[in-house]
């Protein structure tokens, strides 16, 4: 007798199937992001052959490298955006996507993030913010909240975290949003917006790391994080009419900025053509 047949995962053709199951820990948010991302691509009907995934080092970089099936550059720690800029200059028609973590993009690679936003390079950058260096065992990251205990802040984190989405918006990105792994449907729409919008697009995705972060701050399961995200977020549309006191410690989600500056590689090409006239 055959066992009860499991329904196959509907989007598995977007993945390198031979490498499944993923190595993400139980309760990790990376699976949610992978699923939401694949769904977004499916709905947009983008051919994965037109996507270039560029990643850094860290758990979230494993979402595209190796799982999402597209041309994939798994690069050095922090440098994904710089590699991706090179790709975009030579292949402006490609959908160049960067998926990497908070340590990678806001920590070691922070300078590349600022400058790519300033240049307004046509990249879709998804910063998977689990507020910790997860892969290396739970060290403090530039996104770890003040006071939290980590393996390298055993008495609590003495530093303030970045408001990275506002920061990227200020640097000149064309589109910036923030969501969490609780908000999968608006997150998917935001991913689609980032994939189709010209210029530099940035979505910060707050996610859970129960293993390397949660268990040290009293959230041992993915569910506890999702509940936290649900109860402690305010949509940016609502927040704009609120005072800072009313907002308090709540996380603002939703669109942070949308503008229409001309994309960098388009300007570069136009200038080069002008030169040759």
């Amino acid at each position: 007798m055959m066992a009860k047949k499991k329904k196959a995962y509907r989007l598995k053709h977007y993945l390198r199937e031979e490498l499944l199951p993923t190595t993400f820990c139980q309760g990790c948010g990376c699976g949610t992001v992978l699923n939401t991302y694949a769904q977004a691509i499916e709905e947009l009907q983008i051919n994965p052959k037109d996507i270039v995934s560029v990643t850094g080092i860290g758990c979230s970089s494993w979402i595209p490298s190796p799982y999402f099936k597209a041309d994939t550059l798994h690069t050095t720690h922090g440098r994904a955006i710089a590699f991706a800029t090179g790709v975009k200059i030579m292949k402006p028609e490609a959908n160049v996507v960067v998926i990497a973590g908070d340590g990678d993009l806001a920590g070691i690679g922070g300078n590349h993030l600022i400058h790519a936003a300033r240049r307004n390079v046509g990249l879709a950058v998804f910063l998977i913010n689990n507020m910790i260096y997860g892969m290396t065992g739970g060290q403090v990251s530039p996104m770890t909240p003040l006071g939290d205990k980590t393996t390298t802040t055993p008495y609590g984190n003495p530093e303030y975290p970045f408001n990275i989405a506002e920061f990227v918006a200020a640097a000149g990105a064309n589109y910036v949003a923030r969501w969490t792994t609780y908000h999968v449907f608006p997150l998917m729409e935001s991913i689609q917006k980032a994939m189709t919008k010209d210029g530099f697009s940035f979505v910060e995705i707050l996610t859970q790391c129960p293993v390397s972060y949660g268990r040290r701050v009293g959230m041992r399961t993915g569910e506890e994080f999702l509940k936290y995200f649900k109860e402690n977020t305010i949509n940016s549309l609502k927040a704009k009419d609120m005072t800072p006191e009313e907002i308090g410690d709540k996380i603002i989600v939703g669109k942070i900025v949308e503008r229409n500056r001309k994309e960098f590689t388009t300007i570069l090409r136009e200038m080069n053509e002008e030169r040759r006239k």
Partner: peptide, 19 residues
């Protein structure tokens, strides 16, 4: 680029894209 690390990173990215 913004520094030499980014310079060689973008260079390698560009080469994989045909440069």
């Amino acid at each position: 680029m913004e520094d030499e690390i980014a310079s060689i990173a973008a260079l390698i990215g560009g080469v994989w894209a045909g440069a």
